[in-house]
Design a protein around this nucleic acid. Structure first.
Length: 710
DNA sequence: GACCTGCTGCGGATTG
């Protein structure tokens, strides 16, 4: 067993803890990490002891008397670093190892101490690593030349994201300055089989990376409830039911948007006040100030007996420790199965305890989507990540980072560094040279003979505090009450004097707006509106849409449904009963009535985006409602069918068509922070992969047959 | 209706 392989101090730690046995993932990880030289991805559900699974063997194996930092732990969240710092320090209590936090809010004096005498374990974010490469290029070598292990926590949060590509690039650069080769241990929540290779890609050596999976699921009691919504506000009946369901419990509520989070928190609190219930109603999302959020986390973690209710967005989806939660509520569907799994995983964290999940829906398509996600979760299907095979935009960022960090680099050397970087393995030399020339042409880089340095325009970019991250952020207004910041909200028409607004589960009146300093002064009020936010809807994968279609066309009933939920599903089934569908994989309903046409595609968001672009290019007027995956047209079905075959002609030349779209509306590339620094042709490829889905659209054209209504 | 994540280095004022 794993235990026997561990070193004496680690064995003592386990005995002192009184653990009677190790978890399956821990046993597996200990023997593999200690007896092989492979990289590992440890995939298992939340609270299954993954951190210990990685650190017990690593602490047994590594000789911390050696020079240089020995173990680097990378996390997507500062809050997680602060949590894990305490756990790692505890794990090290029988060892003489220095553990250092390194992120934007960590103590500068401790960072300086580490630089002076590099050793032990460092906990860091990808952005702080990026900053080290840019600002401390010489120190990074003395810090990390002798690194033995890199632990990537919550690696699923990096898979299929720009931040993940940045992290890969940084790890590749770290491996280059390492005297040996460090090993990588990735910790992941349950991920899709189709994501395995993508997870392995973080180590730079797919062949030598093995995945250890513990498929054990937490048993969950699930209940679906339906309350039709007739306005933008949540129905009172839903709120009352929600109050009664959760009033004596420790609860997380996920209502999908920041505005809704505030609405839920304030309205439940009001009900609770009226009937003398508990007062522990909180809201937790990115616009609530960090101090307030930390207080909420602290309260949830440290009170044993009191009930509480936190309405939140995906801020509480990742592994921040908030102690015991008994019940999770999801209002309307999650956009993905992965997200549902993460949220479900937050309940019933104690061993042997069942989790409780309530899925409330306010309209039939949300109910259908929630059900589809739940059924796919039961079938162990998880949506595959979207993979950007040619991340030109992140390459631009890394090229600037290397140029800044080296203060002068030979062009050939820069090209080689990018070419050898495993984050960019699908981008070839011709492309890299073309992109570098474009950077030089626009003064982001400057050529001096065979070298490049940062150009005049480039200086503005790399010297900004915003350089280290690869994601976009909106500018926000600070909301302050007697000198205390309550939250930060992006500009909207609501930000004006005498407007009342909900924030941090309280109601406020705006008394003063300072547009120059972006500051808003607020005082408590009695009544107000949820804050407005503008943001894109999130992509839904075609498998979820396919499942939704399958549910509509079969006749199963669900024991975890309330009566109204079953009624709503039956209504949808009835709406589609006018079609004689035999094969749900290939046939799609085309509903015509009096010159109007509805085309139900039941496909993914990006495929719908691509279809929409093709309709636009062909001059066909259409309206897309992605929530219901339906297009509306003002024409007869015969006209449409004729035009449809013409659309196919646009597909072979899709690249130049996408380039046309870009020229017409250059802002469409705004989803990528570094995309605007690319030549147009590379922007088009980025757009094709991230916003559209040409591959699946081609498949859709090949497979799809229309079925008319009777 | 429609999310989230991170942050250097320096100068100058303030405080113990």
């Amino acid at each position: 067993m794993g235990f026997d392989l561990l070193s004496q101090p680690i064995k003592k730690y386990i005995r002192d803890k009184g653990w009677s046995e190790l978890r399956p993932i821990q046993n597996a990880a200990i023997s593999r990490i200690l007896t092989t030289n492979n990289h590992y991805i440890l995939a298992s559900r939340t609270a299954s002891g993954k951190t210990e699974a990685a650190f017990l063997p690593i602490l047994s194996k590594v000789d911390f008397d050696e020079m240089g930092v020995q173990v680097l732990y990378v996390s997507p969240l500062v809050a997680l670093i602060n949590d894990q710092f305490n756990r790692v320090e505890e794990l090290c209590e029988n060892l003489d190892v220095r553990v250092t936090k390194w992120h934007g809010e960590a103590k500068v004096s401790l960072k300086k101490q580490l630089v002076k005498q590099p050793s032990g374990i460092v906990l860091i974010t990808p952005e702080s690593l990026e900053a080290m490469f840019v600002n401390k290029p010489y120190q990074i070598k003395s810090l990390f030349f002798n690194l033995k292990f890199v632990v990537i926590d919550e690696i699923h949060a990096f898979i299929g994201t720009d931040r993940g590509i940045q992290l890969k690039s940084i790890l590749s650069r770290l491996q280059d300055i390492n005297q040996n080769k460090f090993r990588v241990i990735g910790l992941s929540a349950t991920i899709s089989k189709t994501a395995y290779n993508e997870a392995k890609a973080f180590t730079g050596d797919i062949e030598k990376t093995k995945i250890l999976v513990d498929k054990t699921k937490k048993p969950i009691n699930v209940n679906f409830k339906y309350f039709e919504s007739e306005s933008t506000q949540l129905p009172l009946a839903l709120l009352k039911d929600l109050y009664l369901t959760t009033k004596n419990d420790k609860v997380l509520i996920f209502p999908n948007s920041r505005g809704r989070v505030e609405e839920v928190a304030v309205k439940l609190k009001k009900i609770s006040d009226r009937v003398n219930g508990h007062k522990n109603y909180y809201s937790h999302h990115s616009s609530v100030h960090k101090d307030v959020r930390e207080y909420v986390e602290f309260f949830a973690k440290n009170n044993e007996y009191e009930s509480f209710c936190i309405a939140c967005t995906s801020t509480l989806e990742l592994g921040i420790d908030i102690g015991t939660v008994n019940t999770v509520v999801q209002i309307d569907a999650t956009h993905s199965i992965a997200s549902l799994i993460q949220r479900v995983g937050r309940s019933g964290r104690k061993d042997g305890q069942k989790g409780n999940l309530f899925l409330y829906a306010t309209h039939s398509w949300a109910l259908l989507q929630a059900l589809a996600c739940w059924l796919l979760y039961q079938e162990d299907f998880i949506d595959p990540p979207t993979i950007k095979t040619k991340p030109y935009d992140i390459l631009v960022h890394q090229a600037l980072s290397i140029a800044k960090g080296s203060s002068g680099v030979l062009i050939n050397s820069l090209v080689q560094q990018l070419l050898n970087n495993f984050a960019f393995k699908n981008i070839d030399e011709v492309e890299i040279r073309e992109i570098i020339s474009h950077l030089i042409k626009n003064d982001w880089l400057e050529q001096l003979r065979h070298e490049v340095i940062i150009g005049i325009e480039g200086e503005k970019i790399v010297n900004s505090r915003d350089f280290y991250s690869v994601f976009q952020v909106e500018e926000t207004f600070k909301f302050q009450h007697i000198g205390k910041t309550i939250g930060e909200i992006p500009f909207s028409i609501q930000i004006r004097e005498n407007e009342n607004i909900l924030l941090a589960a309280r109601i406020w009146k705006i008394t003063y707006v300072d547009f120059k300093a972006r500051k808003v002064i607020i005082i408590p009020a009695k009544d107000g509106k949820p804050p407005l936010f503008f943001g894109g809807a999130r992509d839904v994968h075609e498998t979820i849409r396919q499942k939704m279609f399958d549910i509509i066309l079969d006749n199963s009933t669900f024991e975890y449904f309330d009566e109204k939920s079953q009624d709503e599903i039956e209504k949808l089934r009835n709406d589609f009963s006018c079609f004689n569908i035999q094969n749900t994989a290939e046939q799609r309903p085309l509903l015509s009535s009096e010159g109007k046409l509805e085309f139900y595609t039941f496909t993914g968001t990006r495929t719908n985006n691509t279809l929409k672009m093709l309709f636009d290019l062909a001059g066909i007027n259409s309206i897309l409602n992605d929530t219901e995956s339906v297009f509306y047209f003002d024409m007869s079905k015969d006209e449409f069918k004729l035009l449809w075959s013409d659309l196919k002609e646009l597909l072979p030349d899709i690249d130049s068509n996408i380039a046309k779209v870009l020229i017409q509306s250059p802002d469409i590339i705004n989803f990528s922070k570094w995309g605007e620094y690319l030549p147009l042709k590379y922007q088009a490829i980025l757009l094709e992969k991230q916003f559209y889905d040409v591959k699946n659209t081609k498949l859709f054209f090949e497979q799809t047959f229309f079925i008319d209504n009777k």
